[in-house]
Write a protein that binds this DNA or RNA. Structure first.
Lengths: 227, 227
DNA sequence: CCAAAAGTGTTTGCTCTACACCCATGG
DNA sequence: CCATGGGTGTAGAGCAAACACTTTTGG
């Protein structure tokens, strides 16, 4: 392998697809661009990686700079690098996706960089800059998949939650109704949540609250194509 | 987003984890390094991406330059970018994995760049340069997963194959014995292979040969964690 | 006719799915 | 006592896993 310094270098960014559940919809955080290219269009939060920081940390930093949010789940999604994806030159972006709790202390209106940030329901997305529409489409697929076959969905809820809240979150993201008794039996038998002493009161009978057991094994064994 | 040109840029490479099945073992292609850093140690084939080529094409080109191989399955794996993973400076690598048919016309001895290339069984790997051990570990996990839940395993076989050959390939990669009748029933019912007019003769009764139907739906629906 | 590998069905247990009523609280 | 959402069990169907013998060819 020749020495690295002889080669022209692409710019490298990290872009983050931030999901939350709001108003009975899965939402993505977008930032409206001020300047060309794609001025006025919406784009994913993100930015250039620093030379001395790990990739995941860069994603986390960008997320924090633009939203003030520190908590939540973050996972690398895919790296996009078609030569013409940015008209300004060769820019490779490492895409991440993040899950933010519904009660996270963030309203996109506040903050500095976040002046033009807003949540958008995934079935009413505005015109998107660069290849960000493609990235979001892939991120949605991955989140649905993750949600079905691992326990990552708890990241979208406050620390304590009722079973109905959990089920509703799943229904919103998966886009389908689930059977209440089957849902409860399955998730309780899986041993990934535990009851807390608290009850949530509201209309009707109070509901037991649960919390995620982070010592739980979160992956499920999927059915094989071959025996 | 500010203009790209103001920022220092990391070097970007593509590294490929090339798998094949040889001698009843899953093997990885490695190249012995001539020069420091890590001189004498083994490393994944790979190299710098060109400024005008898509990432996947860069991986394909590197693979072809170092092995002469064009065919096969190629999929992006993960992007590694810890700041100190290369002592020469910041180098981000986009890792790919490739599957090569057992009868592919490649012997690592031949070729120019490939002078010091060799297949290594995955449970007897030599000392590896950079973070390549970590990359290979992850690639193995991904290949096993892919193999169980999609039809990608055919890439490791010649165009026509017997059911026993297919089953043996799966057993080697998964590292466990499979039931012959269940295997055959499942894979035939899945409709992803079709019989050819050919028979393979050898010791014992001749075997029907099959080929992969590339119009087949290759993904399997996995069991959900939640109903 | 013997050795070697190919090919072929059935039974049993388990898991998934569908489905409807009683319970606890607040007003 | 009524409205509202919380909480609970069972029966039937479909899928997966275990298992052993017959068939075809070459020598």
């Amino acid at each position: 392998m020749p020495y690295t310094y002889e080669y022209p270098r692409p710019a490298v960014t990290a872009d983050i697809v931030v999901f939350t559940v709001r108003e009975h919809q899965l939402n993505v955080l977008l930032i409206q661009r001020r300047d060309p290219p794609f001025a006025g269009m919406w784009a994913l939060p993100g930015g250039f990686i620093n030379m001395d920081e790990p990739l995941e940390q860069a994603a986390q930093r960008e997320l924090e700079e633009e939203t003030g949010l520190k908590e939540g789940y973050l996972e690398q999604l895919y790296t996009y690098g078609t030569p013409d994806r940015d008209p300004r030159g060769r820019v490779i972006t490492i895409a991440y996706f993040a899950l933010i709790a519904a009660d996270a202390p963030f309203q996109p209106e506040g903050g500095s960089d976040a002046a033009r940030a807003a949540w958008h329901p995934i079935n009413h997305l505005p015109a998107l800059a660069f290849d960000h529409a493609e990235i979001i489409t892939y991120a949605i697929r991955r989140v649905r998949y993750k949600l079905e076959y691992s326990a990552v969905g708890f990241e979208l809820l406050p620390e304590e939650f009722t079973l109905t809240e959990l089920q509703t979150t799943y229904e919103i993201i998966l886009g389908e109704k689930l059977d209440k008794r089957n849902f409860r039996r399955r998730i309780l038998e899986a041993g990934i949540i535990e009851p807390t002493p608290h009850l949530r009161t509201g209309d009707g009978r109070p509901a037991r609250m649960y919390r995620y057991r982070d010592d739980a094994v979160a992956e499920v064994k999927a059915r094989r194509l071959f025996p």
